[in-house]
């Protein structure tokens, strides 16, 4: 038993040091930390890649933190607090709760660490710049295009994100506001599928029982849109029901090319991450940076899908 215990302890030691070997502290370059909403959705992975590439280009050292419980506000605040203790040079922040994050930003302000806000706007505290992709605008754009495609007539279903999340509210508001312009369009159901593909498939299967004659599904992200696509495919209704997503991730682009998904919206996650870190470096070098950088979003549909497929 004693021996087993020693082996166990030794294993722990080895494991910890192996794990810690990943994070070696460097001396000179700017140390930037990017705090993401989670590392579950491809969107944030793309953003992280963009941030890493920018860091490599500008010779900065980047660490990426994200809450272990996806989108947890408290853990994001903790990540800021811990980054302050680490005395990083700048924080690139994608808040999962626009309001709940404010105390964290205020702490960074107090510690004199610049904060670059990306993607989701923080509603308080002082951020050096906001690299904006307004979820509201992107959702509005897609819903508007879908409504036009439907000819301003039809029954639609909205698939919402995680209840309570900031992005859910913004995306939902954008979709609903766009559809309001078209009196001929009726939202027959608006249900959550928690941003997840499997959940969307289940919800969609159920909704198709009740509303077999719907004309379109508007999902608040691509994962849910693809889940809906699977459900519609299984019901043999591909092509009869239009489906839209948001993000234009790799799967979605492929589905658009195959004609299963009608459209999506490229929010340029990679670009957002890249610009976020770029702004941080520029600010640290004492260059002037704009108060707001707008990343243009592009609708992706059959007409321009080819250029996305090549990527």
């Amino acid at each position: 038993m004693k021996k087993a215990m020693k082996i166990c302890l030794a294993m722990c030691l080895v494991l910890v040091f192996v794990a810690l070997g990943v994070a070696q502290a460097a001396e000179k370059p700017f140390e930037i930390v990017i705090i993401l909403k989670n590392l579950v959705n491809p969107v944030w992975i793309d953003m992280k890649k963009g941030a890493e590439d920018a860091a490599a280009r500008y010779g900065a050292k980047l660490t990426a933190l994200a809450p272990l419980k996806a989108d947890n506000n408290e853990e994001q605040v903790r990540a800021i607090e811990d980054s302050i203790i680490r005395k990083v040079d700048a924080i690139v922040l994608i808040p999962s709760d626009s309001k709940g994050i404010i105390p964290g930003i205020e702490k960074a302000n107090k510690a004199g660490i610049p904060v670059i806000n990306v993607n989701t706007k923080a509603h308080g505290g002082k951020c050096e710049t906001f690299v904006a992709v307004e979820n509201y605008d992107a959702a509005f754009k897609v819903a508007d295009a879908m409504a036009k495609k439907l000819g301003g007539q039809g029954k639609v279903i909205i698939l919402e994100g995680v209840p309570g999340a900031q992005s859910t509210m913004d995306l939902n508001a954008g979709t609903v506001d766009a559809l309001k312009k078209y009196p001929g369009i009726k939202v027959v159901a608006s249900q959550t599928a928690k941003f997840q593909r499997a959940e969307a498939m289940r919800v969609m299967e159920n909704l198709l029982q009740r509303y077999p004659d719907i004309d379109a599904v508007l999902a608040a992200n691509d994962e849910m849109a693809l889940g809906a696509v699977e459900a519609i495919d299984a019901a043999g209704k591909t092509g009869k029901i239009l489906v839209s997503g948001l993000d234009a991730n790799a799967d979605a682009v492929k589905a658009i090319a195959e004609g299963k998904l009608t459209m999506s919206c490229d929010k340029r996650s990679y670009q957002q991450g890249y610009v976020g870190v770029e702004m941080a470096v520029k600010f640290l070098r004492g260059e002037k940076i704009p108060e707001r950088v707008v990343i243009e979003t592009t609708l992706v549909d059959k007409s321009n899908v080819d250029q996305y497929l090549k990527k």
Partner: peptide, 17 residues
């Protein structure tokens, strides 16, 4: 959690550790 954040270990590794 604090120590792993201070070391800048990313989320997936944090879960495992």
């Amino acid at each position: 959690k604090n120590g792993l954040n201070l070391m800048g270990l990313s989320a997936p590794w944090q879960l495992t550790v």
